[in-house]
Structures are given as C-alpha cells and as structure tokens.
Amino acid sequence: MSERRKDPVTGTETTGHEWDGIEELNNPLPRWWLWCFYGTIAWGLIYVILFPAWPLINSATGGILGWSTRASVAEDIAAVDAQHAERFAALTELDPAEIPGHPELSGFALNAGAAVFRTNCSQCHGSGAAGAKGYPNLLDDDWLWGGTMEEITYTIRHGIRNEDDPDARYSEMPAFGEILSGDEIATLVTHVQSLPEGTDPLAGEGGTLYDENCSSCHGLDAKGDPALGAPNLTDAIWLYGGSDDALTETITNARYGVMPPWVERLGEGEVRAVAAYVYSLGGGVSEEAAAAGQ
C-alpha cells in the first residue's frame, strides 16, 4: 500500500491504492450502507436455516420450517379440489335439465366439462368435438340417442354397446349381407341415398325392401328412433359416409359403434359437467323442443 495523500484537484484524500500512477479517491461509503450489507448476510444465514437451500446430491437441505414449493402446490391443489368438490356435489344434486338455469353453476360446469372433454373424449370425438368417421360429430343437431341434457348425461354415464355397464345403451343392426342379395342391397343403397332429397321411403322397389327390412327400426318415415339409436336416414348426415361403397358396407356387414361408460371413471359430478359442455356445443335439444318433436 502506497502513501495516502490529498489530491490537489479535488481536495479529497486518496485511499492509497495506486495502479500505474492512477490513484483512487476516498469518497467514503455511508456507514449505514455497510450495516445494510451485514444485514443481508445475516438475513441470508437465517434464510438458509429456515428454508430449503443447500443442494445435496439427490435433494437439498430441507430447512427447519419444512416448507417446500411442492408441498405448497399440493396444498393449493387440495384447496381447489375441495372447492370443486362442493360444486360437483351441487351439480350432482341438480336435475340435469335445470343446470342452464343456474348461471354460476353452469359456468363452472362448462369450464370443468371442457377440461374433462379434452382429457377423456377428444381422442375419439376430436378436440373441437367435430367427430370423425364412426365417431359422431357433437356440434350438429343430429343425435343417435337423443340430445336433451338428460339423454346426453345418460349416454355419457353408461356408454353405448359396451359390456362393462349393464345399463349401457344397446341396439344392434343385423348384417344384411346374410339376408339380402347383392342386387337387393345395391337397390337399397340407391334408395337410401335418395331419402334426404325427399323421396317417399316406401316408394318403388327400394321402398318395398326398406319397408320389409329397415322400417321396424328406422321408422316408416325413415327418421330413425333415438330409443334404439337408429339413425335418421332422411338428413344430410352420414356417420360412416353416404357414398355407394360406405352404404353398401354398412348394410352388408352392419356397424357396431361402442362407447365406454364414464361414470365409474369420472364420477357423477364430472359426467354432469361434461354433459353440460356437450349440450352447449350447438346441438343441445331443450326439453320443450324434444317434447314438441315427439
């Protein structure tokens, strides 16, 4: 350390540090600043003792308060779950048809239902619920098993044509390849394709075949029957496609779409929520409309 001296230009004392003739002026740091510095060290020591701090090989020191970010998150999740449990319970107690009349609960149901849908339903029905070949589009106004809140809830709860739930919706179309000849099936395909354009279901050769083989389930008017899951053949929607090949395949070998029951896995509260969500996607049928339709 070299000599301390007074700098002639500023009148300030130097610290005595010198590098190649450059000297450092001693403009002293405030003492309270030094105390603040010591304070932060003390704070750091206390913090290291109280909270998780030192990394070890497989974990870290725990801190005597026992606090951790994971435990904190788990607590938050538990708190949210508890809050949700109340609302799911309220949903369960409500008549499904009444959910839209409760704005707060219905808002919860729609959001919770959207989450449940994305996790459990989107694999088949698509993330936008637009379905795919063989998997119904849930956005349109066509329902195989009925589109009221009650009917949607039942379908989700018990599923369709599964062997896990005795209450599952069930129906089975015969494979007409064993009953009708190839020509008859071709005639029937042409006939069925013309139904959406307004052809009388019972008219002509195709009509006779329809009357004998199809009308018991699909109806004399060919508008289907939600009680049997029989599709409406007069509308513009074909679950498995409306081309010659697709319809020939459907009539010859029949289709057997399966949906699992969800109540065991989701619980009644989430079933109600996802039903409310599906109902809100644009195809929901109100009780009055359903009554008027019948």
Binding site: G126, L139, D142, I237
Partner: peptide, 18 residues
C-alpha cells in the same frame, strides 16, 4: 371465429359456423 372445425353440416344440409 371457431376454426375447430371450420364448419358444421346440420341435418337439413345447411352449413353452420360458430
């Protein structure tokens, strides 16, 4: 505009956007 899906065909053949 909801673009998943871009449109929906209804039973009467009309086209709907959400």
């Amino acid at each position: 505009a909801v673009r998943n899906p871009t449109f929906v065909v209804l039973s009467d053949g009309s086209v709907r956007n959400a």
